[in-house]
Amino acid sequence: IGEIQRFLRDDGTIKVSRSLKEMANRVRRTKDELSKRNGRIPTIVEIADALDVTPEEVVLAQEANRVPSSIHETVFE
């Protein structure tokens, strides 16, 4: 399986959706870490700086992690 995964990686067939979801997980972890360290909620720019990406890339990754109807449930409950 490792070999197949390596083949898939090297073949350049990693899908954008997967890589964005991985980035969204890193965003979530970084947000938690920075919140704990600074005692306040970090800004997008602070999260992006910690991950060494642009804030725009953080936005793109966040969208990938969205279940289409999730906001519908969280907003008014």
């Binding site: 350049g12 890589s19 793109l60 969208e63 990938a64």
Partner: peptide, 15 residues
């Protein structure tokens, strides 16, 4: 990022 978001429905590879 705007262009990337626009084509994001296309199931492209990362490359």
């Amino acid at each position: 990022v705007a262009v990337a978001a626009f084509v994001s429905k296309l199931n492209l590879t990362l490359d």
